[in-house]
Deep mutational scan, measured.
Amino acid sequence: VDYIVEYDYDAQHDDELTIRKGDIIKNVKKLEEEGWLEGELNGKRGMFPDNFVKEIK
């Protein structure tokens, strides 16, 4: 499942992704941690907030 970024987010920890509006995040999975998703961007896998992105259908 792929998501498109709607709002910029700067990573706060090493396991998070810095994302920018218009980025496409690939292979996204829901995490047990409420409010977070995990996906791949530019060869890096990491977490990001689910309210900054929208699923591409």
Rank of each mutant, 00 (worst) to 15 (best):
V1P: 14
V1S: 15
D2T: 14
D2P: 05
D2R: 15
D2M: 15
D2A: 15
D2Y: 14
D2G: 08
Y3F: 04
Y3E: 01
Y3D: 00
Y3G: 04
Y3K: 02
I4W: 13
I4H: 04
I4Y: 09
I4N: 04
I4Q: 07
V5I: 02
V5R: 00
V5N: 01
V5S: 03
V5G: 14
V5A: 06
V5P: 01
V5K: 00
E6W: 07
E6Q: 08
E6I: 15
E6G: 03
Y7P: 00
Y7N: 12
Y7H: 14
D8P: 13
D8W: 04
D8V: 03
D8I: 02
D8N: 10
Y9R: 15
Y9D: 00
D10T: 12
D10P: 11
D10V: 15
D10M: 13
D10F: 14
D10E: 09
A11E: 04
A11V: 02
A11S: 15
A11L: 03
A11K: 09
A11D: 01
A11F: 03
Q12D: 06
Q12E: 09
Q12V: 14
Q12G: 08
H13A: 11
D14A: 05
D14R: 13
D15T: 10
E16Y: 07
E16G: 10
E16D: 06
L17I: 07
L17W: 01
T18Y: 06
T18G: 05
T18V: 07
T18I: 06
I19V: 04
I19H: 01
I19K: 00
R20A: 09
R20G: 05
K21R: 10
K21N: 06
K21Q: 11
K21E: 08
G22M: 07
G22E: 05
G22K: 05
G22S: 05
G22T: 07
G22D: 07
G22W: 08
G22I: 01
D23T: 05
I24P: 02
I24H: 05
I24F: 04
I25Q: 00
I25T: 01
I25F: 01
I25A: 01
K26Q: 08
K26R: 15
K26V: 13
K26G: 08
K26H: 13
N27G: 10
N27K: 09
N27P: 01
V28P: 02
V28E: 00
V28R: 00
K29S: 13
K29A: 11
K29L: 12
K29M: 11
K29Y: 14
K30A: 12
K30M: 09
K30S: 11
K30I: 08
K30H: 10
K30W: 06
K30F: 08
K30Q: 09
L31K: 08
L31R: 14
L31Y: 07
L31P: 15
E32W: 10
E32K: 12
E32G: 10
E32M: 10
E33G: 10
E33W: 12
E33Y: 12
E34L: 12
E34G: 08
E34T: 11
E34V: 10
G35I: 04
G35W: 03
G35M: 05
G35L: 04
W36V: 07
W36Q: 05
W36N: 02
W36Y: 11
W36D: 01
W36E: 01
W36L: 04
L37S: 14
L37V: 07
L37F: 05
L37P: 02
L37R: 03
E38R: 11
E38K: 08
E38F: 08
E38N: 12
E38I: 14
E38W: 13
G39K: 00
G39Q: 00
G39L: 00
G39R: 00
G39M: 00
G39F: 00
G39Y: 00
E40G: 07
E40I: 10
E40Y: 09
E40T: 10
E40W: 14
E40F: 11
E40P: 00
E40H: 09
E40M: 08
L41E: 01
L41K: 04
L41S: 08
L41T: 06
L41W: 07
L41M: 07
L41G: 03
N42R: 11
N42D: 13
N42M: 09
N42E: 11
G43F: 08
G43H: 12
G43W: 05
G43A: 07
G43L: 06
G43N: 11
G43I: 02
K44R: 14
K44A: 09
K44S: 13
K44Q: 13
R45A: 07
R45P: 04
R45Q: 09
R45W: 09
R45H: 08
R45N: 07
R45V: 14
G46Y: 01
G46T: 01
G46L: 03
G46P: 00
G46E: 00
G46F: 02
G46M: 01
G46V: 03
M47G: 08
M47A: 08
M47Q: 13
F48R: 00
F48L: 13
F48D: 00
F48S: 01
P49A: 13
P49G: 08
P49D: 03
D50R: 15
N51V: 10
N51W: 08
N51P: 03
N51K: 15
N51H: 04
F52A: 11
F52R: 05
V53L: 03
V53I: 03
V53M: 02
V53D: 03
K54F: 04
K54N: 11
K54L: 10
E55S: 03
E55Q: 04
E55K: 03
E55G: 02
E55W: 02
E55M: 04
E55Y: 02
E55N: 02
I56Y: 11
I56E: 03
I56V: 07
I56R: 02
I56H: 06
I56N: 04
K57W: 15
K57F: 15
K57G: 15
K57N: 15
K57V: 15
K57S: 15
K57A: 15
